[in-house]
Simulated assay, not measured.
Amino acid sequence: MELPLLILLTTQVLLPLFFLLWLWLPRPTDRLGWAMRVLYGASYFAFILVIGRWDFLSADLELVLPILFVALAALSYLRVRDRPWNGARSAIRKHGLTAAMAVFFLALTARALSGYGYQETAVELAFPFGPGTYYIGQGGGATAINYHHAERSQHYALDIVALNRFGARANGLMPENLTDYVIFDREVKSPCTGVAISAHDGIADNPISQTNTSEPAGNHIILACGTARILLAHFRKGSIAVSGGAIVTEGETLGRVGNSGNSSEPHLHIHAYLGGTLEPDAGLGVPMTFDGGRFLVRGSTVTIP
């Protein structure tokens, strides 16, 4: 099993199950012990709900797990409501580590939530896909929820996948066939009206878990929309439908999602930047908003009817 998948299963399956079971076993000796377990569990759930990639399992779990935690916490209180508030001689000695870990995860959550906003003027775009449900795998203004944020030109880049009816991005955790990924071969629409100042095709799609770091953007298009440049990357080989210099209109088909370039599985990468022209890593990344000012971050879902 690959390390990223093992980490995901540990953080988003095994540890949540631990915190759910810990509400019951062993039964706390006092109500303060119960309260500290609830605080620790709630802080961890808050953290993992913000930074987790729920499209690997099911985006529906993002709602089911906190509801389940709240319900079990309420039921578990019935087991300790007749017990004293604090039966320990030193509450700090008994519960200090639990409290410290709760504060630690709350601090990490706050840091990730700082990426839910932006200060710069955003570029308003149309969402680049037709009917379906889509999930933001990377996005936001903090590296905790968007690893692209560390790159100057990609501060607010998005990685977009599509979800099936079970809320997962693929048929399986990490299937080997590109066609098992819902987003693969989906039509990409132009997010704005402008000029395709660059269109690059001919790069092979990578097998799953392999990347092409020599051509990071893979098959890609750069649009000039007003003063901003919009890069759309990782198209399927042979699918790009416009040529460099062509005028494109919002909603026009640009190509199809593939897995070319520095991409380990099918998704669409999009980012906006100011300055630079034909270089995908040039310029200064700026925020993007979609269809009425919505700023998308990791975990956001977009449903196009």
Rank of each mutant, 00 (worst) to 15 (best):
L3W: 15
L3Y: 13
L3I: 14
P4D: 10
L8R: 13
Q12C: 08
V13F: 13
L20W: 04
P26R: 09
R37T: 05
R37W: 11
L39I: 04
A42H: 00
F45T: 00
I51D: 01
G52L: 03
A59K: 00
A59F: 03
F69S: 11
A71I: 10
L72T: 04
A74C: 10
R79S: 11
V80L: 01
V80W: 07
G87L: 07
A88T: 15
R89F: 10
R93E: 07
T98K: 03
A99I: 09
M101R: 00
A102F: 09
V103F: 05
F105Q: 07
L106W: 04
A107H: 09
A110H: 12
S114P: 00
G115E: 04
G115N: 11
Q119V: 08
A126N: 07
A126C: 04
F129T: 02
T133A: 06
Y134C: 08
Y135F: 12
Y135H: 09
G137D: 11
T143V: 07
A144I: 00
A144N: 02
A144S: 10
N146Q: 06
A150E: 15
Y156C: 03
V161A: 11
N164T: 14
A168Y: 08
R169I: 12
L173N: 08
M174L: 08
N177C: 09
N177T: 08
L178W: 06
V182I: 15
I183H: 05
I183A: 04
D185Y: 04
R186P: 10
E187N: 11
P191A: 02
C192W: 01
G194K: 05
V195W: 06
I197A: 01
I197F: 00
S198G: 12
A199K: 03
D201P: 06
G202K: 05
I203R: 04
A204Q: 14
D205G: 12
N206C: 10
E215R: 14
I222N: 00
A224R: 15
T227S: 14
A228H: 05
R229F: 01
R229G: 00
L232W: 05
A233R: 02
K237P: 09
K237F: 08
I240Q: 01
S243A: 10
I247L: 03
V248L: 02
V248D: 12
L254D: 07
V257S: 06
G261W: 03
N262K: 13
Y273T: 06
Y273Q: 11
L274W: 01
L278Q: 11
G283N: 02
G285Y: 01
F290P: 03
R298S: 13
S300W: 00
